[in-house]
Design a protein around this nucleic acid. Structure first.
Lengths: 124, 124
DNA sequence: TTTATTATTAATAATTTTTATCAATTACAA
DNA sequence: TTGTAATTGATAAAAATTATTAATAATAAA
């Protein structure tokens, strides 16, 4: 059965406190500042668990490194191709688009993600 | 200066002939059937070049493995979380959404991608 | 509370994916 | 045809992620 470990809570809390969208390694480094004993494998393992349970959002990036988002409610993202950063966007979610795909293709749609690519204000 | 090598042409042609969205390894295996001498590094190298020049589209996936799309004109995708497959969707592109992000955030937006996640008809 | 069970951990080895290196080759310009 | 430098194939290296394993600790049962 799933257990409530302090490590998992620390990982989730630290992720939620960051508004960047850290990679597993980023998050591990941040955690190490306060809890140097927590290993990188534990971070990976728990990020996967938290993603599966829906508490954490995994963001796909073009450079192949997974980034994580502690915010549960859905929103869209912008990726800067210069600095690699991922930013939240406060846009209204597109309405009815998941249902459109389900009825047109017969797929079962769980979620959708909209990602913009370009250059952020700092990097322009 | 950029050269026109037979390898690059083979890589591009093979990718265009596939309607799946292969990973670099998938594509390399497919190419090896006819051209066993072409190495995996050449496939990676050219996929990156072709992506940079805009002839090929790189698709971010949640499992962290890059997939490639030989179709130049933009369209949306569906990812099956069971089989890992990526499918093209023929939906109308969302209108004006890039401009909305540019004016709201001041980012320079080059493109946007909409990705649906769920279960495909085969895997339901 | 104490004990037993077993999920989880830290550390690290192994795997997977992608990029860098480098001598040989080859496309293109002169 | 010849010189050049971009590209190639092979492979080493790097980066990212997952598996392994003995030790630890969270929870249930006694």
């Amino acid at each position: 059965m799933k257990r409530n470990t302090v490590q998992r809570q620390i990982i989730l809390d630290t992720l939620k406190a960051l508004d960047t969208h850290p990679t597993a390694e980023d998050l591990h480094k941040e955690i190490q500042k306060k809890y140097p004993s927590i290993g990188i494998a534990t971070v990976y393992r728990n990020l996967r668990q938290l993603t599966e349970s829906g508490l954490v959002l995994q963001i796909a990036t073009l450079d192949g490194v997974a980034r994580y988002d502690g915010c549960a409610d859905p929103h869209y993202h912008f990726h800067c191709k210069t600095c690699g950063g991922a930013f939240d966007l406060e846009l209204n979610l597109i309405d009815g688009i998941e249902e459109a795909v389900e009825s047109k293709y017969g797929f079962q749609v769980d979620s959708h993600e909209v990602t913009f690519t370009g250059t952020c204000t700092k990097c322009i």
